[in-house]
């Protein structure tokens, strides 16, 4: 394509795109006027007048919508970060067992991965919550003196009480993501050439040492992209909290939309909060990636 033609093409494209966007926005304005919905963010300062079961920071129904949204964001962040850690631990363990020589565990973990990966997260969450946690009635399912206690009141850990909603979400998200993370770990380990194994074995290094000191450091860079995308998925999947009554950012947006009818504004807020979250995770993983590269191999 000649340069002039290209330029012409680009200008045309700009006009077409702007025109299309303009039409959509025009439609939106017409429709907003027609339905009397309007578009502004003044309502953010009005009192929310709904209460929340879980709030990491002080909150009362007389606080503003903006504060309620922020609490929702904190709730989301809370569950994302904790299940991110738990998912990584479980996933790594499963991944190691999957590639391990122990055939029994290898089969079990393979079964675990297929079952978890091939059922929808939403149903898993509902099972965890309604069938799992709530079904335990009042007798505790697993309790180790006063330190750790799982019951239908949630999880108690060192006096820290986690609600059943949070616990179910934590478990559901972690277990779902762990199956994917295990696959990432397996892929990473398998990406290390077989020669490396033979090399350290022939040097007389023990299997354990060789695995952790030689294979894993080489596999680490291969983990990062897969892990990043799994973490992003986990963050996005946390919005399913609404199905089991946990007040995350999406659930609070949903309540606000119902109360105020501000669907467009709430959607924009939701969009922005996830773009920020996305950026955050990508940045952190980028830093980790860089530090691995620097420290390493």
């Amino acid at each position: 394509m000649s340069k002039n033609k290209k330029k012409f093409f680009q200008i045309l494209l700009v006009f077409a795109f702007l025109g299309f966007l303009g039409i959509l926005i025009n439609n939106l304005i017409i429709n907003l006027a027609r339905t009397g919905l309007g578009f502004n963010f003044n309502w953010l300062t009005k009192p929310a007048s709904f209460s929340l079961a879980e709030h990491p920071l002080p909150y009362s129904p007389s606080d503003s919508y903006a504060w309620a949204l922020f609490i929702g964001w904190m709730n989301s962040l809370k569950v994302i970060i904790s299940s991110l850690v738990l998912a990584t631990c479980i996933g790594t363990l499963i991944g190691f067992l999957r590639v391990g020589k122990n055939s029994f565990f290898s089969i079990i973990t393979a079964g675990y991965i297929t079952v978890i990966r091939q059922t929808p997260l939403l149903i898993q969450l509902m099972c965890w919550y309604f069938v799992g946690f709530l079904n335990m009635r009042n007798n505790s399912f697993l309790s180790i003196s006063n330190i750790f206690n799982i019951s239908n009141k949630g999880i108690e850990l060192f006096g820290l009480n986690l609600s059943p909603e949070f616990s179910a979400l934590l478990f559901g998200l972690s277990i779902f993501s762990s199956a994917f993370i295990a696959e990432v770990i397996r892929g990473g380990i398998q990406s290390v050439p077989l020669g490396q194994w033979e090399a350290f074995r022939s040097l007389g290094i023990s299997e354990k040492q060789g695995f952790f000191k030689i294979i894993i450091p080489q596999a680490l860079p291969a983990f990062i992209p897969g892990l990043t995308s799994q973490y992003l998925n986990l963050a996005k999947n946390s919005t399913l909290a609404i199905a089991i009554g946990y007040s995350d950012i999406y659930a609070i947006n949903d309540t606000i939309i119902n109360q105020t009818g501000r669907a467009v504004e709430c959607f924009i807020i939701l969009l922005c909060s996830f773009l920020i979250l996305n950026l955050l995770i990508t940045k952190v993983m980028g830093i980790i990636d860089k530090s691995i590269m620097k420290s390493g191999i």
């Binding site: 079961a53 709530l134 909603e165 009554g245 659930a251």
Partner: peptide, 13 residues
């Protein structure tokens, strides 16, 4: 308040 999406879930809870 424990909030659910529909009445069945409220009942279940």
């Amino acid at each position: 308040p424990i909030k659910y999406q529909d009445l069945n879930q409220v009942v279940a809870g």
